[in-house]
């Protein structure tokens, strides 16, 4: 698909979130809920004493009855639908030609970990900060966005064997 048309589609979805809900998109928040609930299951006292987990457990009823959790469920469904329509559903591992599957998965886990930690520190990820805050001219989001690109380009040379 023409990337600009995909971008306009994405922008209109974001605009719909602004107009209907008065908020933007997100992704990492849903996983924070997941982690918080998990910790609260294993060690309830430990979780309630921690301000970070607390903010995701504050909901009076079920912590999973959360906007972002449902939105991310939608992301899975939407991604799957588009994949089916385009015939792109297949069991595979994305990697460059000169790296083993095992190393690629190790890097994926490591990258995911850095991303999870960084997203929480920055109060949002590419969706919640860069897209949403970008469109609202949010100062922190623009600073964040520049740093994401800076960080990725800075490490790109080191990681080139994984992708090329």
């Amino acid at each position: 698909m023409n990337p600009y048309l995909a971008g306009i589609g994405l922008g209109l979805v974001l605009l719909a979130a602004f107009v209907i809900m008065g908020r933007g998109l997100g992704a990492s928040g849903a996983f924070s809920t997941l982690v918080s609930v998990g910790v609260a299951k294993v060690a309830p006292e430990h979780a309630s004493g921690n301000a970070f987990y607390g903010q995701y457990l504050a909901s009076e009823s079920n912590p999973f009855k959360d906007w972002l959790v449902f939105e991310v469920i939608g992301v899975f469904v939407g991604g799957f639908l588009s994949g089916v329509l385009a015939g792109r559903i297949k069991r595979s591992t994305e990697k460059g030609p000169s790296i083993s599957v095992r190393s690629r998965l190790t890097f994926a886990f490591l990258g995911g970990g850095l991303m999870g930690f960084g997203a929480k520190l920055a109060r949002g990820c590419t969706s919640g900060q860069a897209l949403t805050g970008g469109a609202l001219l949010n100062v922190g989001s623009w600073a964040f966005m520049m740093c994401v690109f800076a960080g990725a380009y800075a490490l790109a040379y080191v990681m080139r064997r994984q992708w090329q």
Partner: peptide
């Protein structure tokens, strides 16, 4: 700092959360 970490994670892991 979070943005830089996220950038590292992006190029190492290949994705962002969404």
């Amino acid at each position: 700092v979070g943005g830089l970490l996220l950038g590292f994670g992006f190029v190492i892991g290949g994705y962002c959360p969404g």
